[in-house]
Simulated scan of single mutants.
Amino acid sequence: MTGLDKASGWAGVASVLLTNVATVGATVASPSFEWTGNALSDLGQPGTPVATPVTTLLFDGGLVLGGLVGLGFAYTLWTAGENVVERLAVLPFAVALVGMAGVGVFPSSQPLHAPAAVTLYLASMVAMAVYAVGNAVASALRRGAVTLGLVCAHVGVWWWWASGGSVARDGLAIPEIVGAFLFSAWVLWTAHWHLAGERAPDGAGVVASA
C-alpha cells in the first residue's frame, strides 16, 4: 500500500471524526439546544438562541473541514474500484462532500443553505446506492446488500419525518443526525475495507469476500 493509498483511506476516517465530533460537541456546548426542538443548523447560525461563538465554530468549521478532508477519500474509491459502477460512485460522493462543506459555509439564514443540505443528503444516498450496485457486480454481494440496507434506512428516516408534517418543523435535528450517522458508518466501513480488509492494495487483512 502506497503512502497516497493510506492517506486517502485515512482521509475518510478523519472526515467522519471531524464532522461528528464537532457536531456533537456543538450540541453539548450550546446553552439550550434540544433534539426535539431544533435543527442542527441552528448551532451554526449566529443570533439563534442555541448558538454561541463556540457552537458556530464547531458546527460550521467542522463541516467545512470535514468536507474538504473527506474529498481525499474519493481517490481510494476511484483507484480501488473494481468496475465502472463502483467508480461512478465517486461523483455523487464528491458532490455530497461539497454539499457538506456548503452547509458550513452558508449558515441557515443564507439562500444557499437549504440547497447545500439537500445536496449532502441526496448525493450521499446516491453514492452509497451506486457503490452497492458496483459491489454486487464485483461479487461482494453481502457488502452491497448491507449498503443498500443503509440507504433504505436513510430513505425511511426521511419518509417517516416528512409524513409527520413540515420537513422544517421542530426536531429536524433527529433525522439529520440519523442520516449523518448512516453515511458516516458507510464511509468508516468502506475505509476499513480498503485500509485493512480485502481491498487493501497490499493484501493486508484479506478476508472472505464481503
Rank of each mutant, 00 (worst) to 15 (best):
T2N: 15
L4V: 15
D5T: 11
K6V: 14
A7K: 01
S8F: 01
S8R: 09
W10C: 03
A11E: 01
A11D: 03
A11C: 14
G12P: 05
V13L: 15
V16M: 09
T19Q: 12
T19I: 15
N20G: 13
V21Q: 02
T23G: 07
T23M: 15
T23A: 14
T23F: 12
V24D: 02
V24N: 01
V24M: 15
A29T: 07
P31L: 13
P31I: 04
P31M: 12
S32F: 01
S32T: 13
F33N: 08
F33P: 07
T36W: 02
T36F: 00
N38C: 01
N38I: 00
D42N: 13
L43F: 03
L43G: 06
G44V: 09
G47D: 03
T48G: 09
V50N: 04
P53K: 10
V54K: 08
T55H: 08
F59A: 05
G61H: 12
G62C: 13
G62V: 09
V64L: 10
L65V: 15
L65F: 10
G66I: 07
L68D: 00
L68V: 15
L68M: 13
L71E: 08
A74E: 08
L77E: 10
T79V: 15
G81C: 09
N83A: 12
R87E: 08
L88T: 02
P92A: 10
F93W: 14
F93K: 05
V95D: 02
A96T: 05
V98E: 01
G99E: 04
M100Q: 15
M100T: 15
M100V: 12
G104D: 03
F106Y: 15
F106T: 08
F106R: 05
P107A: 11
Q110E: 15
P111C: 00
P111Q: 01
H113F: 05
A117Q: 13
V118F: 09
L120Y: 14
L122M: 12
L122H: 04
S124Y: 06
M125I: 05
M125A: 14
V126T: 11
A129M: 06
V130R: 06
N135D: 13
A136G: 09
A136D: 06
V137M: 12
S139V: 07
L141G: 00
L141F: 13
L148G: 00
V151N: 01
V151K: 06
V151G: 03
H154C: 03
G156T: 07
W158T: 03
W159D: 10
W159V: 14
W160G: 08
A162H: 02
G164D: 11
G165D: 05
S166P: 05
V167F: 11
A168N: 13
L172R: 02
A173S: 14
A173K: 05
A173I: 04
E176T: 01
I177D: 06
V178P: 10
F181I: 00
A185R: 03
L188H: 00
L188M: 08
W189P: 01
W189V: 02
W189S: 10
H192R: 14
H194G: 06
H194C: 12
A196M: 00
R199N: 01
A200S: 14
G203T: 00
G205Y: 06
A208Q: 11
A208W: 02
A210P: 05
